[in-house]
Design a protein around this nucleic acid. Structure first.
Lengths: 230, 230
DNA sequence: ACAAAAGTGTTGACCGTACACCCATGT
DNA sequence: ACATGGGTGTACGGTCAACACTTTTGT
């Protein structure tokens, strides 16, 4: 049994964000394209979907190939399917986005494919419509950071409140009032305060916290929705 | 130039919602599938993407084919791409959703393809993963109705506040306080009150309003976001 | 005059926001 | 002792949520 319809190449591109806590900068993982056309130019990590491979699995495979990571935040964003988006042929590309802890990146895997981080402020030219994809992801980040606990995907397992605030400041490009930010974030009761301090950036040291993902899952089931007023 | 990768069928399915103001019911447009497999079973309207056709254009074409409508609300929702979602072969389907005014449907066009409305409460069995698609759309409706002026896509050009409230009640499956609803919706200043009344449902008659889409576009550019507390 | 739906205001509770000083520590 | 970043509380104004009666008009 078969359909009378044209077949099309389907690819998956994966927009990977990381956050450099030291520089307070959002970064995107790019790699040097290994095939013609655009050989050697900067591109989102990506690849074609195999015959016997779910889209989701393709995204997982690609992410693992370039970062060595699995079980991280990875969601479908949008499909790009204009006829002429790729001059080499008709390719429909499914864009996924991923948020990872920047230090978890397996550097050997990244190196093999010439992948490296770029600050959002210093993005090189990207092939095809990949710039558009990055912009879409930035927008999504802005929208979602208030509504879902995605910030914690970008920070180390254990983080300080100043770090968390810095991250939100970076995403929203403005400075939030310190006291109000703490009130907002602690009010959710989704942070577990640890008995340790991080002294790497001050003499006093800042308490470390971790995100209570179990509690969040539980609350989500009961209809709870995060809604930070930042 | 060509890629060494498998090619895949790409289809577009289009989830069309309408709102029956009389019965206060949300409806979905379904049609009897015209090809094997699943010939004669109920399905979302859809079709394959042509070789030289943008995804968006395919959605527009399909919607026009079945409804005779263009220039209506039509947005991409998600891609469904599991290997075995269609037993007849590997098909990746891009789901679009559309909101239309139920009486604008061109009945002759719909009839040609055996398309008709179904209440959400009386959906028949659907082929493949189309039930999942409907559920995704319902969820999207719930999320978006507070944040975007999509309700007006479902109502006639001119509508009354009681009708609008009924619609929101239907979407959220609960009854909103009448006075608070009016306050919320009028506070936006996006409704234009007309000098006419609709007397079809009461002796007193309810004032007709229309949505000020120009003003909304303008405000959107300036960063305004609708945020109804329903 | 009455039935049936449309329309209208007020109050209390809570929440968001603005704002400035003390604390802990390593050097 | 001092410099550096971490941490804390309060008061005001606005917004959401709860609540019941009057208005209009066709019959």
């Amino acid at each position: 049994m078969t359909y009378l319809a044209p077949k099309i190449w389907v690819s998956v591109d994966c927009l990977v964000f990381g956050y450099d806590t030291n520089a307070s900068e959002l970064k995107v993982l790019l790699f040097k394209r290994e095939v013609e056309p655009f050989l050697g130019e900067w591109s989102l990590i990506g690849g074609f979907v195999e015959e016997e491979e779910n889209l989701e699995n393709a995204a997982v495979r690609i992410l693992d190939n370039f970062t060595g990571l699995s079980n991280v935040f990875l969601e479908q964003l949008q499909v790009f399917g204009n006829v002429n988006r790729d001059p080499a042929g008709r390719v429909v590309s499914v864009l996924y986005w991923s948020l990872i802890k920047i230090h978890d990146l397996k550097k050997d895997k990244a190196k093999i494919h010439g992948a490296r981080w770029f600050s959002l402020s210093e993005l090189p030219d990207l092939i095809l419509d990949h710039k558009e994809m990055v912009n879409l992801g930035r927008q999504e980040l802005i929208t979602d950071a208030k509504l879902k606990p995605i910030g914690f995907e970008l920070l180390p397992q254990e983080f300080t409140l100043p770090q968390l605030k810095q991250l939100y400041d970076t995403i929203y490009g403005g400075s939030v009032d310190d006291r109000n930010f703490r009130k907002q974030i602690l009010k959710t009761e989704l942070l577990i305060k640890l008995d340790k301090k991080d002294k790497s950036s001050s003499r006093k040291g800042a308490f470390l916290y971790k995100f209570d993902s179990e509690k969040y899952k539980q609350l989500s089931k009961e209809g709870y929705h995060l809604d930070l007023k930042i």
